[in-house]
Amino acid sequence: MNSKAIELKNVNIKYNENPVLKDINLTIEENDFMAIIGPNGGGKSTLAKIILGILKPDSGKVLIFGRKPEDTRQLMGYLPQKVSFYHDFPINVFQTVLSGRYHGLFKGHNKDDHIAVIKALKDVDMLEFKDWQINRLSGGQMQRVFIARAIVREPKILLMDEPMASIDPEMQNAFYSLLSKLKNEMTIILVSHDVGTVLTQVDKIACLNSTLYFHGPVEEAADGLEELYKCPLELVTHGIPHRVLKKH
């Protein structure tokens, strides 16, 4: 039996009296490979931040492996949708990824950390740039570095918010094959707008627009998807094969 990696119970959150997530109940099992999809402003990034514990819900419960999010930070890998930093910041690619291997106060980096950074940079095909200052990178290269920073922790839960934004097709392929390797070792959650592609890759999906329309195996998601985007399935998925999505 799988144990529960993430459990959200009746989670509500408002921004300035404007409800963003309403009564979310969601369980994600260990080693699930799930995509969260939904329209802009649907609350996907907000949900991700609640799971990470950097936003507190107004009401409801969040449990990560049965514990509070603040106590499970060592288990989480995260790619933010948008990283805000000063582009002239004096840090190179290697150091950026290394910062993902944080062990706690007064604990320096060791040999294993350096090996893990090299490996993560290879996985995103950025090793040759390791000594570059980050402001010399292109947008897509920068995104790859932040993907490396997320996976370098060897997390139990990998949460990626729009990982494929500004990534070229070749790297997208490489990225999905990397995820299919990683999915045996960790729970993976992707937030994505590329519904067509993501449905062929993940095992489960959650359809979110302020409330959760559907969550479960991809094959059963057809009705949920139509309801979520209020348009025919073919448009949402750009005609992905119907053997993946069965309509009821």
């Binding site: 990470l52 950097i54 995260y78 990283v83 930093f85 840090i91």
Partner: peptide, 10 residues
Amino acid sequence: FDEEYSKVLG
């Protein structure tokens, strides 16, 4: 460098 991410790191 990235304050939000530092929170995620604990």
